[in-house]
Design a protein around this nucleic acid. Structure first.
Length: 682
RNA sequence: GCGCCCGUAGCUCAGCUGGAUAGAGCGGCAGCCUCCGAAGCUGUAGGUCAGAAGUUCGAAUCUUCUCGGGCGCACCA
């Protein structure tokens, strides 16, 4: 609702400036004044104009002042400070329009593809992976089409690197350390299942063991490294026992990852796998395209002689002149002199596919069912559904897969460099629109606080003790496993629920604890902005007070309790607002100090679509998370000041009830986008 | 060496494209359960926004430099 008014003010200003001064401003600043008494929209416009008009800001503000009063919904305009134009909103009309659920539409067109999680399928997921998946899932939820975001189609995919060296390591571990054959691996996996041991946990330890084993025997180091390389090549080639073992384990671990993520409400539509990218020869197609367009060339001199290379994005972007004589030594190697392709090369091919530019497609098979949809996996079988053929819903996840209009890759910022390479290669190929629609949704990694590291039994060196975080290491088997963390979160919530609600059924308490534990975890990983390094700490994560998920959930639960006790439906309370006379009934109740407190709840609620828009534009879920907290805070602040159930004045009671209803409505909505549920009680 | 990111209250973090007395949460201190649930609320102390210079009517925010910290730059995948 707030956004609707902002847009009207913006249009007004544009018209006014053109008509009166014959100028237009590139971007118009509109702020929330520091105090609600000053108004609801602050325009530092006069300061900006002062430069161009060579006039005092206050004078300009005075000239513009009368024009804003014409906008419906604006009640008055005041000049403050050195020339701020402060607009005051017509509170009663705003409240009534909010009660009717008016919001600016944030939608757009096209298919948006979000890729996240992408955990190597050779060990259990850890906290770092959770940050990735929760960030990606939240962003996908934010983009998902609904009544406020018409037009958008979204898809979520999880890229599986099932042929990488990490998978080779785990194959070496089971074949050499455990001495198993293909049949032996099958039996081993069956045995684990019988024991109730999670495959990904077993692999977590094996991966750490094999990493040690490579280096344990110095004279045999080279031999073991070679074994690893041979295993990798066998997996890549396919059609042998090693590849079969790799597939068994990778698929098994992948299934576990999906189970872990489902505990957090995270689902996927499609799982493209590296094995299919290899076997369907995506790279070969990309390669000829790149050579044809002069993006990829054979280096004939210098240190990269014999390699196919690409000019580095930075040199291209900054227009660094290459010396005419020597070779571009800084160029990125795409194909090694032995003919093998690097990761960036494969990734370029993969991204051409994402935008439908490769002229090739995966085959698709159903992999897993969620209550509301199917998750597909890539196959070589039935591949080659070209862009000219219409895939059916029985053979293909969604039409947009492989034909995205915009993509968002949720990947650690340590991958900034290669991601830029891929993005720029699209530009170099002439696909500028696609390159612009390529967003690397990067984020800083998750470490552990020294306290938590020690708690996990990790012995710190003096150097490490001085740092404020310790990096997790899969190779050392050191880190916080995702499932363990989720278990602990739920357990901690369960303890609280048990003491507060011993009267509830066991199953009910379980469900509440699950919702709270997951909510706390999701909020904890979302409240940090993306480029903040998180030093994970159990004590902090398990806190349920203050700026946490449970705080926001609690506000929503308390609001719901009011309606339960009053025997009134929230929607009815909101509908009743339309019956009130704005001037006679509402205006007096929204004035003064007390009225301002109530009005502030409505104002905050009315900013929902604006905040969502900002969070999407910045690709920053933390903006939305913090807004959820603010909304909860506003409600918790309002709550003890007004005792709704005992209120005797009828119009006042209607307003108070609908204030609780509107706060809850927007809070539940926003928490939904954050993937945080609201329990029945807490 | 080159590139990217960061340095804000005791701690953990916000601070949007420069704008009004720099904000939260935790922790500290002092209070609030005979009224919709205290996972809550109220009050209070606490900051030279790493440092310096510059641009500007105005800088935590933009530019440059210095100091301190992190990450990435390989014919490994």
């Amino acid at each position: 609702m707030y956004r609707i008014l902002q847009l009207q003010v913006q249009t007004k200003i544009e018209d006014l400036l053109k008509e009166r001064y014959g100028i237009s401003l590139a971007n118009l600043a509109m702020e929330l004044p520091p105090k609600i008494e000053l108004g609801e929209i602050a325009l530092p416009l006069a300061f900006e104009l002062a430069k161009r008009l060579k006039k005092a800001p206050r004078l300009i503000a005075q000239e513009l002042q009368p024009a804003f009063a014409e906008i419906p919904g604006i009640s008055s305009v005041e000049i403050a400070g050195a020339g701020y134009l402060n607009l005051k909103l017509d509170r009663p009309s705003m409240v009534q329009r909010m009660a009717a659920d008016e919001h600016a539409s944030v939608g757009g067109r096209g298919f948006r593809l979000v890729e996240h999680t992408s955990i190597n399928p050779n060990k259990a997921a850890h906290v770092g992976h959770l940050r990735n998946a929760i960030l990606g899932d939240t962003f996908a939820r934010m983009l998902k089409k609904d009544e406020y975001k018409p037009g958008w189609e979204t898809g979520v995919q999880n890229y599986i690197d099932n042929t990488g060296v990490q998978v080779a390591d785990i194959v070496v571990a089971v074949t050499n350390l455990l001495g198993l054959s293909l049949d032996g691996v099958r039996a081993w996996m069956e045995e684990l299942r019988r024991q109730g041991t999670r495959l990904d946990y077993a692999c977590w330890d094996l991966y750490a063991q094999v990493s040690q084993w490579y280096q344990a025997d110095a004279p045999r180091l080279a031999e073991r490294r070679q074994l690893r390389l041979d295993t990798l090549h066998a997996i890549e080639a396919g059609g042998n026992d090693m590849a079969e073992i790799a597939d068994l384990i990778a698929t098994g671990v992948l299934r576990r990852h999906l189970e872990t993520m489902e505990r957090l409400g995270i689902e996927y539509d499609f799982l493209p796998r590296e094995s299919e990218i290899l076997h369907l020869h995506f790279w070969e197609r990309a390669r000829s395209l790149m050579i044809e367009r002069g993006v990829l060339y054979l280096e004939t001199e210098g240190k990269n002689k014999g390699c196919w290379v690409m000019r580095r994005a930075i040199s291209a972007a900054t227009g660094v002149e290459l010396s005419a004589d020597g070779p571009d030594e800084d160029a990125k190697i795409i194909v090694r002199s032995n003919g093998t392709v690097t990761y960036v090369g494969k990734d370029i091919a993969y991204h051409l596919w994402k935008f439908g530019l490769l002229g090739k497609d995966f085959g698709y098979a159903k992999f897993r069912s969620y209550p509301s949809h199917t998750c597909w996996v890539s196959t070589t079988h039935g591949a080659g559904v070209g862009s000219d053929q219409q895939p059916t819903s029985e053979s293909h996840p969604v039409r947009g897969f492989g034909h995205a209009d915009a993509i968002y890759n949720v990947i650690d910022s340590r991958q900034d460099d290669p991601q830029t390479q891929v993005k720029e290669s699209l530009r170099a190929l002439g696909y500028t629109e696609e390159s612009d629609a390529f967003t690397h949704l990067n984020y800083a990694f998750v470490g552990l606080t020294t306290r938590t590291a020690q708690e996990l039994g990790y012995v710190l060196s003096e150097e490490e003790k001085a740092r404020n975080f310790i990096e997790v290491s899969g190779r050392k088997g050191f880190g916080v496993k995702a499932d363990d963390l989720i278990d602990r979160m739920i357990e901690a919530a369960r303890k609280e629920v048990d003491t507060r609600h011993p009267e509830l059924e066991l199953a009910e308490r379980d469900e509440i604890a699950r919702t709270i534990g997951v909510g706390a975890l999701r909020y904890f990983l979302l409240r940090f902005t993306r480029n903040t390094v998180i030093a994970f700490d159990f004590q902090e994560a398990l806190a349920f007070d203050g700026e946490t998920g449970p705080y926001a959930q609690y506000a929503a639960v308390r609001a719901a309790n009011i309606f339960r006790k009053a025997g009134v439906e929230e929607t009815d309370a909101l509908e009743d607002m339309a019956l009130l006379d704005p001037k006679r009934d509402l205006a007096p109740l929204l004035e003064g100090e007390e009225g301002a407190g109530i009005w502030e709840v409505w104002l905050t609620a009315s900013r929902m679509s604006l905040v969502l828009e900002q969070a999407i534009a910045a690709a920053e879920p933390a903006i939305l998370a913090r807004y959820a907290f603010l909304l909860a805070q506003q409600f918790n602040n309002f709550y003890p000041r007004h005792h709704i159930l005992t209120e005797t004045h009828p119009t006042r009671k209607t307003l108070l009830l609908s204030t609780a209803a509107v706060a809850r409505r927007e809070l539940v909505r926003v928490l939904g986008w954050l993937g945080i549920g609201v329990p029945a009680a807490m």
